[in-house]
Write a protein that binds this DNA or RNA. Structure first.
Lengths: 331, 331
DNA sequence: GTGAAAGCGCTAACAA
DNA sequence: TTGTTAGCGCTTTCAC
């Protein structure tokens, strides 16, 4: 592949001039610049990225470490990140941690090796993997979940408030034994949603009971089992707050198996909106999260850190909103 | 950040020995190796990726250029790619072309600059952007769609066969005016599915009619409009073959608006399975595509090209299978 | 405005 | 087995 000196030779100038002409840094004689451009074009020249990165001691690459590309919530985040990054001339490397701390560490190592300019991460469970990034002066932004310590900017959704609101909504719709199915203990979003549910119960004058609460992975399969145990007990709940979209699928599957209809038999509200939510009968009431905005806000914060902003780490809290549909209405 | 010579100094050896000890290439005295490892650990040393890549003239990175991370079909592909790549020690950079040739070119340029080891691409419309890759000796594998010319290995699904099968299935279920809603003209998958639909009609002894066919983007919004025009004409179809998942959402939305029930009023089969397909009433009959397998097969092919396999480009055709559910049954 | 030359951090001959 | 050294391709002083 053609190098900068091939271009220089062909244009009859020095490599320095080629570099200057191609990067538009310093001013170059228009005629020479034209010759350089022509030569580069004829040779199909592409600057060697690794060489440039080595010399410049920086790369225009961000790493985005999420738990699962197949989760629409995270793909929406990644869109937000990518749009902002792309706009600023940065590329984004997407990494799936599968919520496993080991895999997360591995990707953090890769990010460090490749000297990415910054990292956006939705940390898996007990993750101190961000510390090593900070130790090497790589800016980090946490998305959706908090980092241990306050090592970088954080962008969160106010899950607790949203869960409280959803619970009150169910109460207002006439449900009285409201249950909750949330994610694994120790995962911030799961715990916050449960806490908000408790807030809502208290405010509605309902008493919490562990028999109305279950935890499972943020996946359909686990949620289905949990829903069975919840719904087949002696005094089952008459409504359910479900902590994510995939879990909602498991819950609805189980309800179908048990012959229970959403809304009429069991009120249902789930986190995360989805294009198919309106196709269900009845349509699914959801808590819509601003996933795209989380991504774009996080990317913006990261870019400004990369740009040299050394002020105190910030926490941005975005709010989710309830979208009422038939699954939370008895009528 | 610590460099290889920091490690060398600390361990009291040369940089060459550090390199050898860390890469396990040549054999190093165990005692020295231990000293090197210790020194590297103490300094938190991470090899400088760009420097290594520059020196080695190669990177362990693949680029995957798809049209949309938010499309579950492509995320499944990306999982397949990533699992295989990761296993082999490669990283994957995901790029969204949004099916725009310009954006696709841009990413191809980036891939070239960064000297990625190879590229997997699901080419947008009329894409010659792969040619430039071949011109620079970067291996390319086409996924889901064919490349102009035969520039690299190709992994496809037999869409035509699958569409034919789906059409015959609808006929067997008693539908007689079967319509088809496919993607943009010029997109291989869209055209193949339409062709397969024609095959099926012919085989079932039904006559094709342009009044039963529509095209739109592979998105819900366009499909919804197309469905309206299809279903509100004088002699509307009594069944519909829909060319992808997102479009199916648009179609089902329109059917709901028109008060049409899937199965009983209009038989529906859509490409791409989805976890929510079984939650619909009636559940959606789909053509399930082996997306994960496409990704993993493509990655395997690419890796073997990177490894120096210069044999003739191959075409791998995977088959999709029909999953019959209630939306294609009158009962 | 332009060129010569140094050097980013690493690996791979080549010597010892 | 180990060290010395050259050089990957680029950008950036520093002279001119």
């Amino acid at each position: 592949m053609a190098t900068i000196s091939d271009v220089a030779t062909r244009a009859g100038v020095s490599t320095a001039t080629v570099s200057r002409a191609l990067n538009g840094k310093s001013t170059v004689d228009p005629e020479l610049a034209a010759r350089v451009l022509a030569a580069a074009d004829e040779l199909g020249y592409r600057p060697n990225g690794p060489a440039r990165n080595l010399r410049r001691q920086e790369t225009a690459v961000l790493a985005l470490i999420i738990s699962d590309v197949e989760n629409p919530f995270f793909t929406a985040i990644s869109r937000g990140v990518e749009d902002v990054a792309h706009e600023a001339g940065y590329s984004v490397v997407l990494c799936n941690s599968d919520d496993e701390p080991d895999k997360e560490r591995e990707y953090v190592d890769v990010a460090l090796q490749e000297r990415v300019a910054g990292v956006l991460i939705s940390p898996a469970g007990a993750g101190d993997s961000a510390e090593v990034l900070r130790a090497h002066n790589t800016p980090v932004v946490a998305l959706d979940r908090r980092l241990e310590g306050s090592l970088g900017d954080t962008v969160l959704v106010d899950n607790q408030l949203a869960a409280r609101e959803a619970t009150l909504h169910l109460r207002a719709q006439g449900y009285r034994r409201i249950g909750c199915l949330t994610g694994p203990s120790g995962v911030l979003t799961a715990d916050d949603r449960l806490a908000g549910y408790h807030d809502g119960l208290a405010e509605a004058g309902l008493t919490a009971s562990s028999s109305l609460e279950r935890r499972s992975e943020f996946k359909a399969a686990g949620a289905k089992d949990a829903a069975r145990s919840l719904l087949t007990q002696d005094e089952p709940p008459d409504a359910l707050l479900v902590a994510n979209n995939a879990m909602a699928i498991g819950v609805l599957e189980m309800m179908a198996e048990l012959g229970l209809r959403a809304g009429r038999d069991i009120g249902v509200v789930a986190f995360d909106d989805a294009p198919w939510a309106t196709l269900l009968d009845p349509p699914l009431t959801v808590v819509a999260q601003p996933a795209y905005d989380m991504g774009s806000a996080g990317a913006q914060l990261l870019l400004s850190r990369i740009g040299g902003d050394h002020s105190e780490p910030t926490t941005t809290t975005l709010s989710a909103h309830l979208v009422g549909r038939g699954s939370s209405s008895k009528g």
